[in-house]
Design a protein around this nucleic acid. Structure first.
Lengths: 235, 235
DNA sequence: GAGTGGTCTAGACCACCCT
DNA sequence: GGGTGGTCTAGACCACTCG
């Protein structure tokens, strides 16, 4: 484990466990350097990570302070993987509608930068939050990277499987979103009236090598989903 | 201007001007160090900034590569200020509905952490994209921080005014969003049928000192707005 | 194994806040 | 002016990729 990651995690844990409020002042650099027995740059890096995650903010000449959000139960849009970790207070369950091996359409081959002949795993699922329909999700995984997938795996967190079993390293992701009126197919699955509002999200996930491996389209139920996002520009 | 910012801007400009494609390999560290006559750490920092902005990605042991998004004309959700800069290809215009000085409701006082007696500027605007209604926006500015505001300023970019004229330094922001069915008041202003889908966004902006100074509620027209978001975890 | 990016250090000096 | 964070350097050593 990297030193700056260890320090970042430890500081974050401490904030959560002691339930420190927004604006609480954290120890100064000098103290952190002494406590963790590392150089100043390592502390700088650990704090930069926490700042980019929205856990703290730093004010030059003044100090380092706790940052807390005002509302809970919102899905973090910056997590570039499933929200399994996000909504810990809630019970997320899954119904798998199908897992099948297919060949890509032109649209999807373009997104995933498929070589000719590449096949994909096509997964369709409904996800529930506290037994209420949260979203319907259609994902495409390049089978050159994800060689195996089945209903049992899709029933749990696919991303956990990719990371733990396949040892894949997720690098980054692009999300495109807009609001829609639901068509009949979606609305039936989400148990809502046709024409109801929904959030439609297209996501493209890349390995840390820069290769795209997962394209997915998700439609969220407007009454059971809400999102949040913390920004802070890197200094 | 900071060295790492200069280098970051220069590299980004270069990518855009030469219109480099996703996956194009950029010069190696050694070369950048020689070109800019700085130490390795400065290059590391410049590239970290570009990576967090979604401009490049770095692969250990391999190189630094250009990252480009697949779609354009989307509002960047990570910019923590107006989208004036975002949609350069489009014509954004504004209709100011009102600018008035008020005292906060309890809800807003809570968000903005108002001291007793603090007053606010209340601004209501409709924004248009290529002459089509994009969103309706209601903002509250703490008058202890924004001592003056009028219709003329609100007709342009308020954030530019805050930065240029008032020399405020925006630090970070929180966004909370969910999809709604529009009520009559909003739908009339956005020239859309009542009950139509919309994206409702609550935003809280902080100075770099950590003090919240602007709370705003925006409702987006679902046919004229689309959003994107690039994530990449800090390493 | 050569090439290339990532981590970490010690220390100098700068910039900003606050009293 | 004292306190505290931010920038930058030079250099050692580590870790990953790729041919």
């Amino acid at each position: 484990m990297l030193k700056y990651n260890e320090i970042a995690t430890e500081i974050e844990q401490d904030i959560l466990q002691r339930n420190l409020k927004q604006g609480t002042k954290l120890p100064k650099f000098e103290e952190l350097i002494a406590r963790y027995k590392v150089s100043k740059s390592t502390i700088v890096k650990a704090l930069a990570i926490l700042e980019s995650r929205g856990v703290i903010y730093q004010v030059q000449g003044s100090g380092v302070f706790v940052r807390r959000r005002k509302k809970y139960g919102y899905i973090n849009m910056l997590e570039n993987q499933g929200f399994t970790s996000d909504l810990e207070e809630f019970k997320i369950t899954t119904k798998v509608l199908g897992v099948e091996k297919i060949f890509p359409t032109e649209e999807i081959a373009e997104y995933l930068n498929c070589a000719p002949g590449d096949s994909l795993f096509h997964v369709q699922r409904i996800r529930y939050i506290n037994a209420q329909a949260l979203c319907i999700e259609e994902s495409f995984f390049k089978s050159s990277i994800v060689p195996y997938l089945n209903e049992e795996i899709a029933n749990e967190s696919i991303f956990n499987y990719l990371k733990s079993a396949l040892k894949l390293k997720i690098g980054f992701s692009d999300k495109y979103l807009h609001v829609i009126k639901m068509k009949e197919a979606e609305s039936k699955l989400l148990e809502i009236e046709t024409g109801s509002p929904g959030l439609f999200v297209e996501e493209l996930f890349y390995l840390n090598s820069g290769e795209p491996f997962d394209f997915s389209k998700t439609t969220y139920h407007h009454e059971h989903s809400q999102f949040f996002l913390q920004s802070s520009n890197l200094k």
